[in-house]
Design a protein around this nucleic acid. Structure first.
Length: 572
DNA sequence: GCCGTTTTCGGCCCGACTGTTTTCAGTCG
């Protein structure tokens, strides 16, 4: 049973307890634990086995429940609890606008125990007339059901940024909008987001809201209050906007950026200092004097914290680090000096090496690695050693012509299902840099896949393992492998691990990146570009790196070309 | 159910909008 599965059970327990109207704080405790279990990259099985379950929000009781789950695959408490309510009630609770109280009411009064039954009842107008419910609620329930039946995938970062950009452009036309910022999980640069949040500083909320509603992306108005409103776009994505006075913009930005857990943490901290923090500012508990609010920096400073970058605001020890002045100085896009993973039309890319080099140079890079696929990957026109030798001539000729730019000769060599590499050592030894990757056998056992990765890293010529977990967001889960074992070998063999910047990959993910840093393993950023415009996705990899607490020194391609060549040498 | 620079007991973040109400509960973020 993995972290995700155990977290799911805790989320479900919280929902059931909520329907049963149990103690709110007990419910919150389950949710907090679930969130934290999802936030760590450590394998919870290993932690449980080695008595290392010191996860925030997990006390003696939940640790015992985790152990039970890990050891038996079941949890007696959860099974008893689930049997006390129909499973369909949890589904009903996922309908927007329908919470635990309504779910309970519907079940007790009308025996509604599934989304289908609820839909039928709403259509037959059986709901209006129940205590506190009328026709409008029936309408909203039907709308909500339609919504959850659409495919409910979270959207990828670039798509969310595109939509946010269109709305911001519209709001910018309003001269009374003094400050505009994205907020929420999008500002924290999570790899996928469920909705888009926008914050505006203005003394004329009415005018700003009008512009928001007018935006061409708006398909439907979900809520419209004096300062807070929401729309749904044609793509079905919810966009929330909040307008506050410019003097409150910083406090509101902190509040609206979240995460929820981060907000709770700093509000608790404020309380200890006899302060109250809300979206309008930081106030003295007694007297209510406002001490900060205009900028985020002010808000954090009053709390005794240095500024915390949005990407770190996940309540994963960043508040403690900020209090101790030990936050990392996060890597920035402009620190990146080259791209370590680029394809050309020699394999499955669309452009020539020269065209790719020109695009990389336009990005201000000093170098790029041409890493076309190896022969085994037939679908990608993988190169034979013969064609690799021909490619060498082309690259050497280009390098002679190029000024202040170097094309490094590499390969993305396939790690075959038996763990051997697709090129012999004498082929690999002739290259500047070697990337290795798994492209097949995703369903092999944890031991087999771990062994393949470890074996590849032990090869004296392999410098980087690319897209190490093999996941495709919303499409394919990562294959199962022992990440700690991979880190240990990476450290021992001076092998870097990639953050692949392709929007659907972002692999490693932020949690694993942070573990890699803690283990002293270098990270390589590679766009995996197959066309010139794909160099743009470097910013996504940088976001993952930032969310993983990386600094410039943790990233291989923040080095100059010369330093890079030195740094990747293997000593085994 | 968790947790401790007041505490091992008694706290636990804060406010807006909707739909239903005549002052609020439920839901959401």
């Amino acid at each position: 049973m993995n972290n995700k599965e155990i977290a799911e059970i805790f989320w479900a327990i919280a929902d059931i307890l909520e329907i049963k109207d149990e103690n709110f704080f007990r419910i919150r405790a389950y949710r907090r634990a679930a969130q934290n279990i999802e936030n760590i990259a450590d394998d919870i099985n290993v932690l449980a086995r080695e008595q290392r379950l010191n996860i925030p929000g997990v006390g003696a009781d939940l640790a015992r429940k985790i152990k039970e789950l890990v050891e038996t695959g079941r949890l007696a408490y959860f099974e008893t609890l689930s049997q006390s309510l129909p499973a369909g009630l949890l589904q009903i609770m996922t309908i927007p606008g329908v919470g635990p109280k309504t779910t309970k009411l519907l079940y007790e009064q009308l025996k509604i125990d599934s989304v289908d039954a609820l839909e039928k009842a709403a259509k037959n107008h059986e709901i209006a007339g129940l205590f506190g419910l009328k026709e409008k609620t029936e309408e909203n329930i039907l709308k909500g059901i339609a919504l959850i039946r659409q495919s409910h995938e979270k959207i990828l970062l670039p798509e969310a940024m595109r939509i946010a950009g269109l709305i911001i452009a519209e709001i910018k036309k309003v001269k009374e909008a003094k400050q505009i910022s994205i907020a929420g999980s999008l500002r924290r640069q999570k790899e996928t987001v469920r909705d888009i949040d926008i914050l505006v500083g203005s003394n004329q909320p009415q005018k700003v809201t009008d512009a928001f509603m007018r935006s061409e992306v708006a398909a439907e108005v979900l809520a419209r209050g004096a300062t807070k409103s929401a729309i749904r776009t044609h793509e079905g994505i919810q966009v929330d906007m909040r307008v506050v006075a410019p003097d409150s913009f910083g406090a509101a930005l902190v509040y609206f950026t979240g995460s929820k857990e981060h907000n709770i943490r700093i509000r608790e901290l404020a309380k200890k200092k006899k302060l109250k923090i809300n979206e309008y500012g930081v106030f003295e508990e007694e007297g209510g004097r406002c001490l900060a609010g205009r900028t985020e920096e002010d808000v954090y400073r009053i709390l005794g914290l240095v500024y915390i970058e949005p990407e770190l605001r996940e309540d994963t020890r960043e508040v403690e680090a900020a209090a101790a002045g030990k936050l990392p100085k996060l890597i920035k896009l402009k620190d990146v000096r080259g791209d370590l993973h680029v394809h050309s039309h020699w394999s499955d890319g669309t452009a020539s090496i020269a065209a790719m080099a020109a695009a990389a140079q336009a990005k201000g890079y000093e170098y790029m690695v041409i890493s076309d696929h190896s022969q085994w990957l037939g679908v990608a026109k993988g190169l034979t050693p013969g064609r690799l030798a021909q490619q060498k001539k082309e690259i050497e000729a280009l390098n002679k012509k190029l000024k202040n730019f170097t094309i490094l000769r590499g390969t993305e060599v396939d790690i075959k299902s038996d763990g051997t590499l697709d090129f012999a050592d004498d082929v690999l030894s002739g290259l500047d840099i070697v990337l290795a990757a798994i492209h097949s056998g995703f369903k092999q056992s944890r031991e087999q896949i771990t062994e393949r990765l470890v074996k590849a890293m032990q090869n004296p010529y392999v410098n980087i393992i690319v897209h190490p977990s093999g996941r495709l967001i919303n499409e394919r889960a990562a294959y199962d492998f022992d990440f700690e074992a991979v880190l240990n070998t990476a450290k021992k063999t001076n092998t870097a691990l990639e953050v692949n910047c392709y929007p659907k990959r972002l692999d490693l993910d932020d949690r694993h990146v942070r573990k890699a840093k803690e283990a002293g393993v270098l990270i390589a950023l590679g766009t995996d570009s197959h066309a010139p415009e794909q160099f743009n996705s470097m910013c996504l990899g940088v976001s993952v790196a930032r969310r993983g607490w990386l600094e410039k020194k943790d990233v291989l391609n923040c080095l100059s070309c010369k330093e890079l060549r030195k740094r990747i040498k293997k000593w085994i």
